[in-house]
Design a protein around this nucleic acid. Structure first.
Lengths: 236, 236
DNA sequence: TGTACATCAGTGAACGCGCGTTCACTGATGTAC
DNA sequence: TGTACATCAGTGAACGCGCGTTCACTGATGTAC
């Protein structure tokens, strides 16, 4: 038992340092923008030498990739939790809960939001297939749950709204269709539209464009949300 | 006349070189991301030495500021033109025309869109008051025109939708109220909401997040637009 | 028309900087007998 | 319990690079008489 506990200790220290590197990187990004994520700056902040980080990440790009995956996971966890917590509510209330959690997470973690939805970190080259495709997809799947909850009444019989499965990425559908068998192509389209709709106000706010125009971005968001659930044909 | 024509020639060459520097900077950003805007890279591309650029811009930040102002102006010109061209149409058609022009400009100039709505260029420090506040505001004023055209029927009597003038930036109101005397605080809020709504789908598309999920972002956008004008209480 | 001067766009070498990454190493921690 | 060895986190100096910016300059273009 002594052996396992001592190697366990080493592993724990290792995991803690790994986490501290990532935490420091995000803090640097928060205060200095995406280009503040440099191995030397992280090391400086942690009181190490820059190359000590090579014991934890093979390369700077590997660190950034890990960061992106972590951030996606944190966002997905936050919104999934809000969705689960509101399981007993009406669809309209659940959609509002999800959207508010999305916005709250983004405002609390603006550097994370920028990292995953904004410009790539300078000099960063994502691995083939994107930085964290599965984690990224989790958010999309979560939004599909909103469209599924809104129900088929929310999908308008609009001219030009003739979606079919070919309109969507097979990787997305592979995750979404088993989870929501009732969802139609129009439902998936609705999910993406809701995503874009909410993304806009949040992105403008995170990037400071909304705050330059209004002192009440939260009132604006809640009102837009009320309009959104109404346009989905859902009551209060 | 010889004198004016020769100094005119010099001025023309100067203006041309200035324009070429900016054009080259945007091309570099298009192919290499925001961090590709470096004086040395621009000079290399133009076959000059890096310090030759100091004859045109006192500093790299001055160049970036000029770039941002130019890009805002180009965007505002594009959407204003679409608005003016549709003057004879119904409000719904005009709003669709404006939104499509916004999206078309963003897709045609993704590097410009990123420059003004995304992360700041690495190392760039904007002058006090922002890079180009007036040019940035022009887009907001344009959106106020949409809300004005939609009319008071589009402003919902929602609970919690009690906006007044204090909710908005005085600088914005100073531009908007004289131009649209009939606009109420709820109308300004509507303008910002429309902005956020459209911004979301366009930003996701410009940053490649939408394209990873669907092959038909334009169909999605047109459908969302149809829903938007419907939710404003406007017919076809 | 010709000549002396002013303008000014652009050169080329140099500066100091921070970066990612490599290398040979040290010293503490844990393991085996 | 004590000793010899293995592991491994972290050091410190160095590399080559591209960057913004400065400096003293050159050479062509335009101006004045």
């Amino acid at each position: 038992m002594a052996a396992t506990s001592s190697t366990g200790r080493r592993e724990r220290l290792r995991a803690e340092t790994t986490a501290e590197i990532k935490r420091t990187a995000l803090e640097l990004m928060r205060s200095g923008g995406p280009d503040a994520i440099t191995l030397r700056a992280i090391a400086r902040e942690m009181g190490m030498t820059a190359n000590a980080i090579y014991g934890y990440f093979a390369t700077r790009d590997d660190l950034v990739t890990a960061l992106i995956a972590d951030v996606y996971t944190a966002l997905a966890d936050a919104v999934d939790a809000a969705w689960a917590d509101s399981a007993a509510d009406t669809p309209a209330a659940r959609i509002r809960a999800w959207a508010c959690a999305f916005r709250a997470w983004a405002l609390a973690n603006p550097e994370g939001f920028r990292l995953i939805y904004g410009d790539p970190v300078p000099g960063y080259r994502a691995p083939d297939g994107g930085a964290a495709p599965d984690a990224a997809r989790r958010v999309c799947v979560g939004i599909a749950a909103l469209a599924d909850a809104a129900g088929p009444g929310a999908e308008p019989a609009e001219e030009g709204a003739d979606f079919d499965w070919d309109d969507f990425d097979p990787g997305l559908l592979a995750k979404v269709r088993p989870a929501f068998p009732a969802l139609t192509p129009a439902g998936v389209a609705l999910a993406l539209r809701i995503w874009g709709h909410l993304h806009g106000l949040v992105a403008l706010e995170v990037y400071g464009h909304l705050g330059a125009q209004t002192a009440s971005p939260d009132k604006l968001f809640r009102l837009e949300l009320a309009q959104l659930v109404r346009s989905l044909g859902l009551a209060g």
